[in-house]
């Protein structure tokens, strides 16, 4: 075991995969000479050279589309978005080309590509740099959507995403690049569609993913433990494919559910998970599912307002109390 930051774990994943497969390359804004806007690709230009690590102009639609065309013709691009807020410039490429090519061509062209970069709010970045996009991408057939909440998962899932033959939206968070965690030594991957229980419990299931596992779900569970409430924290890790069975197993044990996400509430990922729980575990529920999300507001700048929009530990604890009727 090595103790690594998530930044270094992601770097290791890319470095190992590029060393393993010469068809894998990295492209994006500032990924090379600048060593990455958030230093995730630090040292990769020096190690692999400009034939494998490409700095681009600020042209998201252009390099996203270029990556998809490269994937159609046998390469395996890793396309870094400086943030997924900028990927909206490339949404036509991702949705109309990457996601649909395999079906449109009757299965002739697959698109093995990873779009990766930070997603969601950071700290007072205002409306155009703070959106969460899991539900956007998860709605599109043809895409896979992956998140992680610790360094071990970050590395194992990114390696799997790079090896996958379909387009993968790999959502990171600039707030947790420095978060340390144990990473297994040697080669390992984590399959898509397999979640993990991050904290076992018996009284309530808290479903969370990405940075909210470490920032909200686990701290809330600690607080709740002091009140004698044992919360089970379930991280599906990949939004699509979704590990329903892991969720259902937990719900059948605890009978109470709180879903925590940073997406807007309307048509959030929690809406889909709730529907599946109601359909498959209706008789197991002792309370309606509660959702803790960002409010449906374009993110304001002021600290007080940003805090009022984003989910927080207090709102998670309140939701847990509600489903427990305490």
């Amino acid at each position: 075991m090595a103790n690594l930051s998530i930044r270094d774990a992601l770097n290791q994943a890319m470095t190992e995969e590029m060393a393993r497969d010469p068809m894998v390359f990295l492209m994006g804004e500032e990924v090379g000479a600048y060593n990455g806007a958030y230093k995730v690709s630090k040292g990769m230009l020096a190690q692999f050279g400009p034939q494998r690590v490409y700095d681009t102009p600020i042209t998201e639609g252009g390099f996203a589309g270029l990556g998809i065309g490269a994937a159609m013709t046998g390469l395996r691009p890793i396309i870094e978005m400086m943030t997924f807020n900028f990927a909206l410039q490339a949404i036509d490429q991702i949705v109309n080309n990457a996601a649909k090519m395999h079906l449109m061509s009757g299965g002739q062209f697959c698109i093995p590509i990873v779009f990766r970069g930070p997603n969601g709010a950071a700290h007072m970045l205002a409306a155009q740099h703070s959106q969460s996009f899991e539900s956007f991408y998860a709605q599109v057939p043809g895409l896979k959507v992956v998140t992680y909440s610790d360094a071990k998962d970050a590395k194992g899932l990114l390696k799997t995403a790079i090896r996958d033959d379909d387009p993968v939206i790999f959502l990171e968070s600039e707030m947790t690049y420095g978060q340390q965690g144990d990473v297994p030594d040697g080669e390992y991957t984590i399959p898509l569609g397999v979640g993990e229980v991050k904290r076992p419990g018996t009284d309530v299931t808290i479903i969370a993913w990405s940075k909210l596992v470490g920032q909200l779900a686990l701290p809330a569970a600690e607080e709740l433990a002091k009140m004698g409430i044992q919360a089970e924290v379930v991280d599906p890790r990949t939004i699509k494919p979704l590990d329903e069975e892991l969720i259902f197993d937990s719900v059948r044990k605890t009978n109470r559910v709180v879903i925590v996400e940073e997406n807007f509430k309307f048509c959030g990922v929690g809406s889909e998970i709730s529907e599946r729980i109601y359909n498959r575990c209706f008789d197991d529920l002792d309370a309606p599912v509660e959702r803790v999300t960002s409010h449906d507001v374009p993110m304001p700048y002021a600290h007080s307002l940003e805090s009022a929009v984003l989910p927080n530990v207090g709102r998670v604890i309140e939701a847990v109390k509600k489903v427990l009727y305490v």
Partner: peptide, 23 residues
């Protein structure tokens, strides 16, 4: 590499195929 339905949407795909050849 196809017929494409979004005006201008496939030009970057062609550019990517050319990138692939050079790569």
């Amino acid at each position: 590499l196809g017929g494409h339905g979004i005006v201008g949407g496939h030009i970057a795909l062609g550019t990517g195929a050319a990138f692939s050849s050079k790569y």
